[in-house]
Design a binder for these strands. Structure first.
Length: 577
RNA sequence: GGGCCUGUAGCUCAACGGUUAGAGCAGAGCGCUCAUAACGCUUUGGUUGGGGGUUCAAAUCCCUCCAGGCCUACCA
């Protein structure tokens, strides 16, 4: 690929919360599609920086640590390692998997807060919040339970009654108690917090959102709602009374009156996207310039294209709060260019549920099948336009048909036929006929269409095109029928099989963003390391020369049996482990 | 309550306001035998959730009703 075509692409995935193992719905909503495009853009020769991290602060992390009987720092370090391991298992190709608790993020978060304060965009607010003496902490609204004054439901939460859906204020609840300990020893205390004056940046944010004509409706409509609903964009509290987090400071300096407080997790989490690049630089022994050229438009990032991936619940923070932080700083940090947001994946007629253990979690998925099976199904069924649904029947038929029958069997029939008739090397001689020409023309069209869908970040359409590319190989073999041709004209059959063997390498290259392990296996079987992305298809199909030795691979994709499917459906219906 | 999204073939999904609403899977028929009983070809399925309206023309735009989902700012 010509050097002038090289682009620099920064990709971040929404950072998963530290608390527990994520389910497949979480995976398909951000990390997995982000990885698909990171791999694709790298394969196209672009310079890619793909970052992700764990989101470690906030009340749930402290409670989970307490439940595990461990200090928060220790708990988070352990869970980071668990999540890192699962990311590796799913072959998520992060350039760095960081932690929002890193020293780099502490420094940057404090830096941004200092800049925002200097710009007059932070105000102090004294407010009254519920404090639980038994728990020794302030309670967020939803951690307070009581009887709903509206409908009498006894387990209403402080923010909303889930029985009658009425919005509540914690002080409305009758007989309020801590949802953590059940204690009724609650009191209202005065506490001071910092608010980010998002309202002052409303017009600027609005104009910025308006300039994003190519963003999905899902993304812009959510942002517009927040900008224009009621009194418009509200200021947002960016500090909390917690122990674990980034201490409130103005840059390097203390913040009088804010001692003992930390920044709100949603203030520091997106900043970790930037800090993560700094962690990457440190981990690779690089200087600051190496990461700042990705993030500072005055230090080399002016040509960077920045794409964020996230589930729809994360949209307000990425379209409003984080841009407000960046714009408000008055410094030339890179703003996001494109937001790819996803709907939810449901599980067999309901929702995936972390609390009920309903659905398949990342560790369980890898324990029963290779990552590629999940990657293929999840990506080819990604909830791009609406919520979508996982069922075991659909999973079984899709994987068996697409991976085992269409792709896996193609590889198998080509390599085994060659071995039996010509031996385990690319056969020489002969000419292919017009059927081969038709195949090449079709592939030329389809490969370019596949690239188009990937550039447009249309995940399902790209998957469908890739599948059609695989199927084209079977169609060709069927019409060319080298097993018949061999009897009359062995040279011609040799040329046909030479083409088909080269097709396997092309398939491996094209498929790698979706199914990297299988692609690597196919490349190994073809005994090549030439990952050149196909330009003109006719040329790409000549890379493995006559005489080139190969091996017949083991079964590339084993099929899922009915008994397995039934057992798994039962096992994952509810209650983890 | 408010806002947004979704509803298309048995299933999962496509379709700039513009021929006869298309694919894959499943179903039916035929073919092939190299291959993981795999592959290929042909083919049956739709009053586009209901009703009304705008338009030469509506799955698409408007109104309304029904069903499902998401968000609603202190969970993250």
């Amino acid at each position: 690929m010509a050097g002038t075509d090289m682009a620099r692409i920064l990709i971040t995935s929404a950072i998963p919360y530290i608390n527990g193992i994520k389910h497949l719905g979480n995976l398909v909503g951000s990390q997995l599609p982000a990885d698909l495009f990171a791999r694709y853009f790298r394969a196209r020769g672009h310079e890619v920086m793909f970052l992700c991290a764990t989101d470690e602060h906030g009340t749930p992390a402290e409670l989970a640590a307490a439940k595990a009987g461990k200090p928060v720092a220790e708990y988070c370090a352990e869970m980071w390692a668990v999540q890192k391991d699962l990311s590796d298992g799913f072959r998520l190709s992060f350039d760095h998997f960081g932690r929002s608790s890193s020293p780099q993020n502490h420094a940057l978060t404090q830096h941004f807060a200092g800049r925002l304060a200097e710009a007059g965009l932070i105000r102090e607010v004294s407010e009254r919040q519920v404090y639980s003496n038994a728990d020794g902490r302030f309670l967020p609204d939803r951690y307070i339970e009581g009887t709903c004054p509206n409908c009498g439901y006894e387990r209403a939460r402080g923010d909303q009654c889930e029985n009658c859906t009425k919005q509540l204020d914690p002080t409305d609840l009758i007989n309020p108690r801590s949802a953590i300990s059940g204690s009724t020893d609650l009191e209202v205390r005065e506490t001071k917090h910092l608010y980010l004056r998002q309202s002052a940046m409303k017009d600027k944010l609005d104009a910025w959102i308006d300039s994003k004509k190519d963003w999905p409706v899902l993304t812009t409509s959510i942002a517009k709602k927040w900008l224009h609903d009621g009194d418009g964009l509200q200021d947002r509290g960016i500090t909390r009374d917690l122990d674990w987090g980034v201490p409130v400071k103005k840059g390097d300096e203390d913040w009088p009156g804010m001692e003992g407080k930390v920044f709100y997790v949603w203030f520091d989490a997106p900043i970790e996207y930037i800090a993560c690049a700094a962690e990457w630089a440190e981990a690779h022994g690089k200087d600051d310039a190496a990461w700042r050229r990705w993030w500072r438009t005055d230090e080399g990032a002016e040509d960077v294209r920045y794409i964020q991936f996230m589930g729809k619940d994360n949209v307000p923070f990425h379209t409003l709060s984080f841009p407000a932080t960046i714009m408000g700083s008055g410094e030339p940090w890179k703003l996001v260019d494109y937001i790819k947001s996803f709907n939810y994946l449901n599980y067999d007629g309901g929702q995936f549920s972390t609390s009920q253990g309903r659905g398949v979690f990342m560790d369980q998925a890898l324990s029963i099948l290779p990552a590629d099976y999940w990657r293929w199904w999840l990506l080819s069924h990604a909830p791009e336009n609406s919520d979508s649904e996982f069922t075991w029947e659909n999973f079984q038929t899709s994987v068996n048909k697409d991976l085992a029958d269409v792709l896996g069997n193609f590889v198998s029939r080509v390599t085994k036929f060659c071995r039996s008739k010509f031996g385990e090397a690319v056969p020489e001689g002969g000419e292919t006929g017009e059927r081969a020409e038709a195949l090449i023309n079709e592939l030329e069209t389809r490969v370019r269409a596949y690239e188009g869908h990937m550039e447009a970040m249309e995940v399902r359409k790209a998957a469908a095109e890739l599948r059609a590319i695989w199927a084209a190989g079977n169609e060709y073999l069927q019409s060319a029928a080298p097993w018949t041709v061999f009897k009359e004209d062995p040279d011609k059959a040799a040329a046909q099989i030479r083409l088909a063997l080269n097709l396997i390498r092309v398939y491996a290259v094209l498929s790698a963003p979706f199914i990297p392990d299988a692609s690597a296996k196919l490349m190994a079987a073809m005994n090549t390391d030439d990952w050149t992305w196909p330009g003109p298809v006719a040329e790409a199909l000549q890379i493995l020369p006559s005489g080139h030795a190969f091996t017949v691979p083991e079964v590339t994709f084993k099929k899922i049996a009915d008994e397995e499917r039934e057992e798994w459906a039962k096992r994952f219906a509810g209650t983890r482990d």
